[in-house]
Amino acid sequence: MQPMLALNNVEVIYNDVVLVLKGLSLTVPEGRIVALLGSNGAGKSTTLKAISGLLKPENGEVTDGEIRFLGQPIHKKDAAEIVRMGIFQVLEGRRVFEHLTVEENLRAGAYTSGWKGFDEKLEMVYSYFPRLKERRRQVSGFLSGGEQQMLAIGRALMAHPKLIMLDEPSLGLAPLLVEEIFQIIRQINQDRGVTILLVEQNARLALESADYAYIMENGRIVLEGLPADLKDNPDVREFYLGLNEVGRRKSYREVKTYKRRKRWLS
């Protein structure tokens, strides 16, 4: 079966000089949760922005390769068109509209799909996030971090997307809240069949939720596989889960080998 989303040898250059993605390829099958892991600066967010068409305002450009969504090339389309095709990116750091109320934020999320069916969609979002319903008239700048993340995800649901791309939903949240949000993400995936592409630094959590995972470094995919296999891979265990062969946390002395071994990895 043809995958829902396919990136083939994608190259992204910022400001005409900085090469950020160096021939990246990955596929996202329909109805699954795919995780994209990697350290800071590996190019995870750039990958998402290349897909959603948000590179242009940042002076970035897909210079080579292609991105196909449901069989159609999308790397030349602008962000609004891509949203209308069914891809919705939840930006890193929540990015709610601080001076709009919760409900107005959700209305903004429904921008492309218009006002019809709005109330049902609103109820659907509130059923996943009852806390947002309690605060529907509040200005969202005053919500807690967790509630803002819920609002950001709810806003994505309002657009009725086929694919939601989540950029670090765990960023800056308390561990309990992170668990809660991941649970809801899995639930949305199961109930609604929404495909999810998840970018995370929290590798343990991401590997628990995903059906398939990619690990990227320096603008390339260096490893991929089923989460269970990746969890057993000694490199992943050491670099991303912080465990050594015996499964204990490792000591600082061993961390020093990190740089040397990492070069080999990429």
């Binding site: 948000l54 891509i82 949203v83 919705f88 990116q89 709009l100």
Partner: peptide, 14 residues
């Protein structure tokens, strides 16, 4: 109003 608050986020929702 959304654009006034956060242009990139507004772009991301089309």
């Amino acid at each position: 109003r959304a654009v006034a608050d956060d242009q990139q986020a507004a772009l991301s929702m089309g």
